[in-house]
Amino acid sequence: MIGIINSGIGNIASIKSALNKKSIEHKVCISKNDFDKINKIILPGVGSFKTFYENLIENSIFEILKKKIQNGMPILGICLGYHALFKSSNEFGHYEGLGFVDGEVKNLSELNINLRIPHVGWNICTLKKKSILFENIDNEKNFYFTHSYIPTGVSTNNILGVTPYGKEIISAIEKDNIFGVQFHPEKSQKQGLCLLENFCKF
């Protein structure tokens, strides 16, 4: 069963509706007692890293997540949940992330991108390697992005996909059991739902 982490501010309703559409069994995890029978985790997130992080700590989810993932449970981080997979974030202060992947989340403006921030709208994710996550998804398909922050300093081995926005931004990662995407698959119509299904079924 898929566990969807509810950080308190995330838009879990749209993830739920996407999984319902694909008839994938899932359960919302609000506290550390909700992880029974869960074998995969989706970590969504809308909001600022600060609020997100404080809510996860307050509900004791941070530590249990760390343990589960270290023990090999697959996780898919989406948007802010993607940022949480890294060592740290600079959004509204400096926060330690879950630290599964080396990298630091920075504002797009720190990357000397001469385009409008936030990056909002549909853009492609070009794969750097083959992945189960993108099976049956064409490279030129668009996904929906809405973000001001992006992971930087990620090792090439862990970069799964990049997106052109002034320069190549790192829009998808894969490291063993850990997956993350900057865009919102639950809002990206056919190809987005296909990606969620790929994660849930592999």
Binding site: V46, G47, S48, T51, E91, P118, H147, S148
Partner: peptide
Amino acid sequence: ASTYGSSS
């Protein structure tokens, strides 16, 4: 903006 992120 600070709670939900500027992009929201």
